[in-house]
Amino acid sequence: MITHPDQHQAASQSTPPPPLLEVKNLTTEFSTYAGTLRAVDGVSLSLSPGEVFGVVGESGSGKSVTALSIMGLIRRPGRIVSGSVQLRDHGDLLTKSHADMRKIRGDLISMIFQEPMTSLNPVFRVGWQIAEALRLHRNMTKPEAAEQAVELLDRVGIGSPRQRAREFPHQLSGGMRQRVMIAMAMACAPSLLLADEPTTALDVTVQAQILDLMIQLKDRDGAAILLITHDMGVIAEMAQKVAVMYAGVVMEEAAVGDLFDNPMHPYTQGLLDSIPHGTSRGKALKAIPGIVPNLLHLPTGCRYRDRCPAAHAPCARAEPPLHQMSGTTHRVRCWLHHPEPPK
């Protein structure tokens, strides 16, 4: 069942639960031959248990690097320059050793990726791969873990799970492989699931099955989900809160209903207008002109200004901060909505 935005708003009026994950001012850079680029530039977000937080953006917006940074999976030439990632009861993940992070990954935090064929190991049976997490984190014996793996495959809706557990990834369809990934991610009942474009490679009917499965798992296990996608439709269906990312920064953040009813940032408006829909037929779509900027050569001031139809003098002078609109949880990075734009 889908939690509706209004229910979420009703719930947030009582004392909100303490956040499960609090990312503050996360900055991740990559060194390249051409220079150092900032893929994630001061991102802050917070997730509560049982919540789906959507991160939406185009390629190069930094949404995947944000998830990899939270997971502690940034490797050279990338590095996390600053910020903190607080996981409730466990402190700042960015200060943990590799050994500590290995204990946390797959246990407290799991991740599912876009292309399950590249994230499953082709030379091991899928049952073995699911059992691995259980043996590592739950100290199960091989037969116990194997039995549990079969149960997990059954739970994610794979028919004849005992037989499937003995198969290799290439023997499964794309939808089944993604279900294996979810079974793996859910093996240790993590409190946080990072899902990076989990349905992008899938057909729409299979996507519906996978989204349904994620909602079931969230409702039953109370996990929080950070859902990264480029698809506004998936966001509308799944998320309670949304952050719109562009060129490494959050441009706008709001409850899902607010974002779709009252998109404030010109980029969010542009993204929503770009989506073809029933009533747009026969008309030109309002496309966003230009392309996503090269992170090595960002414009001065607002990084969206050279594509923005509302760009005006202050936009070139300084980068706008993410400003919280008074009396709401709606935050937007745009001088149009800021009380004191630079003169």
């Binding site: 729409v204 519906a208 989204l211 349904d212 509308a236 269906e237 899902v256 779709f260 929503l272």
Partner: peptide, 15 residues
Amino acid sequence: ALPLPDPHIARDRIL
């Protein structure tokens, strides 16, 4: 099954 960009539409997906 097509996700629509409108959070106010609650639909019964035919799975």
